[in-house]
Design a protein around this nucleic acid. Structure first.
Lengths: 128, 128
DNA sequence: CTGAATCCGCATTGATACTG
DNA sequence: CAGTATCAATGCGGATTCAG
């Protein structure tokens, strides 16, 4: 069964809308290690703002990917962890990650090639 | 080997930056069937604008995912097809697509659940 | 510590018109 | 047919401030 367009890729879109954003996959990966606290996640994800971590976690919680556990103590403490559903998603994402690791250099090479050609064509235009 | 954060998910980001946009996966899926022309793709991808199809195809071409073949005829004719690299990417994406198909209903259920609870909490606030 | 709320700039996208 | 060019709108995401 291939990746046929009128059911598969439409639904693939829905998934990518959920995990294809800037931060979700990293959050999922980190929670795949173990349960973590808000600040812990914030510290480990370089460049994420407080706001986006909150937004991302809320989205994942809403979709049943992560659970949020609040401990009514002072100062507050909130734990996040992957649900079983989230764990299966992490597994599925693994194929793409593996692909990335083994083919990223090919993509970089293709890019350099493409850009070099483009620059060459640009140079020819100025001659004419 | 799990999806560990400091190499895997960083590179995963790079991949999602390439195929995680709104249209790339659909284009890849369609070209996975066979070589197609610009207008053919445009017709089969509902909602895509001429501009975004062009932009998407250029990006995929630059990354070595698709090839672009121009026939110097009148009217113009341009064929697009998957490269071998593109074909391997399609395979890798398959896992995510499969996940989507088998778990999308769970996500929808989780969402409905979450939203229902949120509405309930909202109602309580108005009482207080 | 873990958020929520607001404002705002910038990038992405769509619409439209035009071209070889 | 297969684009390119330009402009306008949308929305993501960052910075900041306030709160429990």
């Amino acid at each position: 069964m291939g990746l046929h367009p009128h059911s598969a890729s439409c639904r693939a879109r829905e998934i990518l809308d959920r995990v294809g954003d800037k931060w979700s996959l990293q959050v999922i990966a980190l929670l795949g290690e173990r349960t973590k606290r808000f600040t812990e996640l914030k510290r480990e994800i370089e460049g994420i703002s407080q706001r986006m971590l909150t937004v991302t976690l809320r989205g994942l919680e809403r979709d049943g990917i992560v659970t949020r556990t609040v401990y009514p103590v002072m100062p507050p403490r909130v734990d996040y962890s992957l649900t079983p559903l989230g764990a299966t998603l992490m597994d599925a994402a693994q194929a793409l990650v593996n692909w990335a690791e083994s083919h990223l250099d090919q993509i970089d090479a293709a890019r350099a090639d493409y850009d070099a050609r483009a620059a060459e064509i640009d140079a020819l235009k100025k001659t004419s």
